[in-house]
Design a protein around this nucleic acid. Structure first.
Length: 820
RNA sequence: GCGGAUGUGGUGAAAUUGGUAUACACGCCAGACUUAGGAUCUGGUGCUUUACGGCGUGGAGGUUCGAGUCCUCUCAUCCGCACCA
């Protein structure tokens, strides 16, 4: 009988499901592992990236389950989002119907891969029960001032017809549809993630060695903490007058307090309120005002590409230390969103300021001198390096690195400014003007203002009878849905029609899985369950979420902790593995390129075990995986061979073998088998280099093939099927049941017999001056002298007319003879 | 520009604390069995040389008896952020 994957796999999948084999136990005294792969969006079909993601996680889950851990290995559906609405527009299907039928199909696909997910903990984020608790969190966040509503400039994607968070804008374009993002002023809801800037940054250290350093550094850059000096420039009297005494001055932020004496102009963002006031009051020429407005309307990406541009505002400020009168400009390189939208400019020691000053012939003043006089004072050059201060009153001669804090101190002493910290991170805009999302549970009342919905009315569910055309917000267009009574005063009010960003759902799903499903009706997150299961011992997913999801989920964890929904948890994901992409001909598999492999047809042709084996064998999980048809054949061939060798097994349990009585090939086979066993612990618990474990098992099988001892064969297959079960579970379960009554798949680790590694003779390399020249075989008990003797004999021709000046013996490895 | 990685055969990739570089697999070559095979099995396969040898982990140095591994410099590629004051 040949290897028939579909028969074997169907049999075991049915059995596992009937036995509820993968449900976590409720006994919280058991040692636990929480293995989590990022949940999929129910797009319709699995792709190879999913296969890889879940094969990695499943191998870990199955490994720990076999080691008698209580394992939580859940799956669910990140089910809200644009594509469901797009499908509705394109195929006239209701998003809900589209989503749930996709889930049903993809659940079948996951099943066909033999993944060991809990069935009872599965949910979709669009389930009303999930929405209900999420809305409760949102209301609590509002009450605790962690959530607010404000009208401001936002990123707008016209093609998705919605607002995007900063994290969802990639190079000026929408992360989902790649359409260029526009700026738009509109109201929206924001989560105060900035409040957690320092904690989010500092706690990255807790993840050292547990998260890829790349992800840590990406998050750290994104938070973008920088320390410096904040102070204000006061307007000169004439300027103040010009502004009708409405403005005293403006605040600036600098990380280069050491260059403060070199300021020769200041610059405001085109959107700065002072600039706007000047325009509004016609204090600037009409054509220049138009140009400034145009500058302000450019997106950040356009501005980054544009040449430096700016206009003298005809205002002056007084330098707080020198009393000099300094001109005020507006410039396109000043960002409204950072550091108060205003800068002090030191063209001599800042490249950007220099470029601007050169273009508009603004004055230069050097305040740092390098070691070489010429370096610092070469006319019309910018000097970025270290040096000593000049032209800086009492700080002259001080090293600029020291002057930074000294000057900040002076500002603080004189009450002119203070040392401060700035962040690039901006608050998380969570409003989306779309239908297929969780409604934001607030009500607008003419009398009471913004009022949260009463918790007992939750969930605020989506109306089913909507028309989805792609034009406008379907919730806002619904004839009656938004009509409601104010929860506070009972008067007629209007329900909020924005929905929540889908990243809100994925920010707390790890706690929902951990909550026992029996409690799902009564609470969103159960503290005790979460205390037992969290943190996630291993999280697995794509690097594309390095900032987005992983930052939001970290923030949410800290926020939920402060709101009292969870406790004792600093970080949700203890260990993170970012898997590489699946490539075809060097580029990412994608529908538009037509270079996809359909997992279904792969499974149909070779079986799930081959798909899983190839995925884990072709590359380490962290690296990119290049698709290769013949390598898939190779994986299939190995499984067939393994299955075929069941004929070699002669007893149904692990035999006790008299190692000394074996011949050379038999001993070698045992060595290879036990080497694989030894390696497995490291691979499953630390390195996740499944490719090397599989290679070791292949070596072991090759070595077994070179001998005929039935006991050695029996022991070998007992161990190999034990080791590979997490990777190719169906064929191993089948073999184990048939040959060993499944004994090798239960009951923890198999003992490593060290006696197997004890050898009678040892092969050593012999090197002369570090260059390998020969190989010798010595008795295991041979003394150093005997070995050196033998080594010299083996390389006698290299010793002619030379003296051995040093003899180095590396036990069990090699001999190095140094000759002259 | 800033930050993070990665460079090893024809290809995917291995290689505790520095200790016989290229395990395992794919591909290729040769052979066996076949009417035939893209099936299966066996053997070979870093480059170079008739051979002895020589050369080989992006490049150049260094430390060491010994370096893919450690140090310095450098080149290339990839990823993230990017006018952040």
């Amino acid at each position: 009988m040949g290897y028939n994957p579909s028969e074997i796999e169907t049999k075991w999948q049915t059995k596992w499901s009937e036995q509820q084999a993968f449900e976590p136990k409720e006994d919280t005294t058991l040692k636990k592992k929480y293995i989590l792969s990022m949940f999929p969006f129910p797009s319709g079909r699995l792709h190879m990236g999913h296969v890889r993601n879940y094969s990695i996680g499943d191998a870990m889950a199955r490994y720990y389950r076999k080691q008698n851990y209580n394992v939580l290995h859940p799956i669910g559906w990140d089910a809200f989002g644009m594509p469901a609405e797009n499908a509705a527009i394109k195929h006239g299907r209701h998003p809900k119907d589209w989503t749930y039928s996709n889930i049903a199909y993809m659940r079948k696909e996951l099943n066909s891969l033999g993944l060991s997910f809990s069935e009872t903990r599965e949910f979709a984020t669009c389930d009303e029960l999930y929405t209900k608790w999420e809305q409760e969190f949102i209301i609590k966040m509002f009450e605790e001032k962690l959530l607010y509503r404000e009208s401001t400039t936002v990123n707008w994607c016209e093609s998705c017809h919605t607002v995007l968070a900063n994290e969802q804008v990639e190079e000026g374009c929408c992360w989902r549809c790649d359409n260029e993002v526009e700026l738009k002023e509109m109201p929206g809801y924001y989560l105060d993630i900035k409040k957690y800037s320092d904690e989010l940054l500092d706690d990255l250290k807790l993840l050292n060695g547990k998260w890829p350093s790349q992800v840590q550094s990406m998050q750290s850059n994104w938070i973008g903490k920088s320390q410096g000096l904040e102070f204000s420039f006061k307007f000169s009297d004439t300027s103040k007058e010009k502004l009708d005494d409405k403005f005293e001055g403006f605040e600036v932020f600098t990380t280069r307090a050491d260059t403060v004496y070199g300021v020769t102009y200041t610059a405001l963002a085109p959107e700065h309120p002072i600039v706007k006031a000047l325009i509004r009051n016609s204090l600037i020429d009409i054509d220049i005002a138009e140009k400034i407005t145009a500058m302000g309307n450019m997106t950040e990406i356009e501005r980054a590409k544009a040449d430096k541009e700016g206009y003298d505002l005809g205002l002056t400020v007084i330098h707080p230390l020198t009393g000099e009168e300094i001109p005020v400009w507006t410039a396109n390189f000043v960002l409204a969103s950072y550091g108060g939208g205003a800068v002090m400019s030191v063209p001599t020691h800042d490249e950007r300021d220099f470029e601007f000053a050169t273009k508009y012939e603004l004055p230069l003043k050097y305040v740092i001198s390098g070691d070489l006089e010429s370096e610092a004072l070469a006319p019309k050059k910018v000097y970025i390096g270290e040096g000593k201060l000049i032209n800086s009153q009492k700080f002259n001669g001080m090293k600029n690195s020291e002057a930074k804090s000294a000057i900040i101190e002076l500002f603080e002493e004189k009450n002119l400014g203070k040392g401060t910290t700035n962040y690039k991170l901006r608050n998380w805009g969570i409003s989306r003007q779309r239908y297929w999302g969780a409604p934001i549970p607030f009500v607008h009342c003419d009398d009471c203002g913004l009022v949260p919905e009463n918790v007992e009315n939750l969930p605020i569910a989506l109306p089913e009878d909507v028309e989805i055309t792609g034009e406008g917000n379907p919730l806002a267009n619904h004839p009656i849905w938004s009509k409601c009574a104010c929860p506070k005063c009972g008067c007629e009010a209007k329900r909020e029609t924005d929905t929540l960003d889908t990243f809100v759902q994925s920010s707390w799903y790890q706690f929902r899985y951990a909550t026992n499903p029996k409690k799902w009706n009564s609470c969103g997150i159960d503290k005790e369950d979460v205390n037992y299961w969290l943190g996630v011992d291993q999280y697995i997913g794509g690097i594309e979420h390095a900032i987005l999801h992983l930052l939001y989920a970290r923030f949410f964890t800290k926020a939920l902790r402060d709101l009292g929904f969870i406790e004792n948890i600093k970080e949700p994901f203890e260990n993170l593995l970012t898997q590489g992409m699946v490539l075809m001909d060097g580029s990412k598999m994608s529908k538009s390129k037509g270079n996809t492999i359909d997992p279904d047809s792969l499974i149909e042709k070779y079986g799930a075990d081959t798909a899983r084996l190839f995925t884990l064998f072709a590359a380490p999980p962290q690296k990119e995986l290049e698709w290769n048809d013949s390598a898939v054949e190779g994986a299939f061939r190995f499984i067939k061979k393994l299955y075929d060798r069941r004929k070699k097994v002669s007893s149904n349990s692990k035999p006790i073998i008299d190692h000394a009585s074996l011949n050379k090939e038999e001993k070698l086979a045992r060595v290879k088998v036990y080497e694989a066993l030894k390696k497995s612990v490291d691979v499953y618990e630390k390195t996740f280099a499944f490719n090397t474990l599989i290679a070791s098992c292949m070596e072991a099988l090759n070595a077994l093939d070179k001998q005929e001892n039935k006991q050695v064969w029996t022991e070998g297959l007992y161990i190999i099927t034990h080791l590979l079960e997490p990777i190719i579970p169906h064929v191993c379960a089948e073999l184990s049941e048939e040959l060993f009554e499944s004994k090798n798949l239960i009951g923890g680790k198999i003992e490593i017999l060290e006696e197997v590694f004890v050898q009678d003779t040892i092969t050593l390399g012999v090197a002369v001056n570090g260059k390998r020249r020969a190989e010798i075989e010595v008795d295991a008990g041979a003394s150093k002298e005997e070995i050196i003797q033998q080594a010299k004999a083996s390389i006698s021709k290299w010793l002619e007319g030379k003296n051995v000046v040093k003899e180095i013996l590396v036990p069990k490895k090699m001999v190095n003879l140094v000759v002259k």
